[in-house]
Simulated assay, not measured.
Amino acid sequence: MHWHILGAGAMGCLFAAQLDRQKIPLTLLLRSTKENQSEITLDIEGVSGASQHQLAVQACSAKGQIDYLLVMTKAYDVLPAVTSVVQRLSPQSVILLLSNGIGFAEQIQRNHPQLQLALGTTTEGAFRRGPWQIQHAGLGSTRIGQAATTATPAWFEDWRSSLSDCHWDRQISAAQWRKLAINCAINPLSALEGCRNGELASKPALAAKVRELCAEMTLIGQAAGQCAAVSGLEHKVFEVIKATAANRSSMLQDITAGRRTEIDYINGYADRCARQFAVEAPLNRELLEALRQLEQARFP
Rank of each mutant, 00 (worst) to 15 (best):
N36L: 11
P300K: 00
C214L: 03
E280A: 15
E45W: 14
V78R: 05
G7W: 10
L55Y: 14
S250W: 14
Q135E: 12
Q52L: 13
V78P: 08
A148I: 04
G125M: 14
I144H: 11
Q58I: 00
S38D: 14
T121S: 09
M72P: 03
H112C: 01
T261H: 06
T218G: 08
R128F: 10
G46F: 15
K179Q: 11
L294M: 08
L291K: 06
E106D: 13
I266Q: 10
E280L: 12
G64C: 00
G221R: 01
A17E: 11
H136W: 12
A270S: 13
R129G: 04
E124G: 09
T83P: 05
S161H: 02
S173Y: 04
D158Y: 10
A205G: 00
V230S: 06
G258L: 03
C60G: 01
S48L: 15
G198Y: 11
L219S: 07
H112K: 05
A151T: 12
Q58A: 02
K23H: 10
C184F: 08
T33V: 15
W155C: 04
W155K: 10
I40A: 13
I144L: 11
N187K: 13
E239L: 09
E39L: 09
R170F: 03
T121E: 03
A201C: 05
K63D: 01
Q54H: 15
L28H: 14
M1A: 02
Q37Y: 15
G46P: 15
S93M: 08
M251Y: 13
R160T: 02
S84W: 09
E157T: 06
S202G: 03
A59N: 01
E106H: 13
G125D: 07
E106V: 09
P282G: 01
G12M: 08
P113T: 00
L206S: 01
Q133I: 06
A154Y: 09
N267D: 04
L28W: 12
L14C: 01
W3G: 00
Q107C: 08
F299N: 00
I182P: 14
Q92W: 11
W168R: 01
A224G: 04
Q87R: 14
H167G: 01
A126N: 06
A215H: 09
N36R: 15
A191G: 06
T218Y: 05
A229F: 06
A81F: 14
Q171E: 04
E199S: 02
P80G: 07
D43Y: 13
L30S: 08
D158A: 11
G145L: 06
L70Q: 05
I220N: 01
V237I: 00
I266D: 11
Q222T: 05
L6R: 03
L28K: 12
A181M: 08
Q135M: 15
P80W: 07
G198W: 14
Q116M: 08
E45D: 13
S38N: 15
A118G: 04
S32C: 07
P131R: 09
T122R: 08
Q171V: 03
A174I: 01
D169N: 05
L219K: 07
L294I: 02
A137P: 04
A257K: 10
A278K: 11
E234D: 12
N247P: 06
V82Y: 13
W132F: 14
Q176C: 05
G46Q: 14
L79C: 03
T73Y: 06
L288M: 04
S231V: 00
P91E: 00
T218N: 03
P113Q: 04
A223K: 05
S164Q: 09
S190T: 12
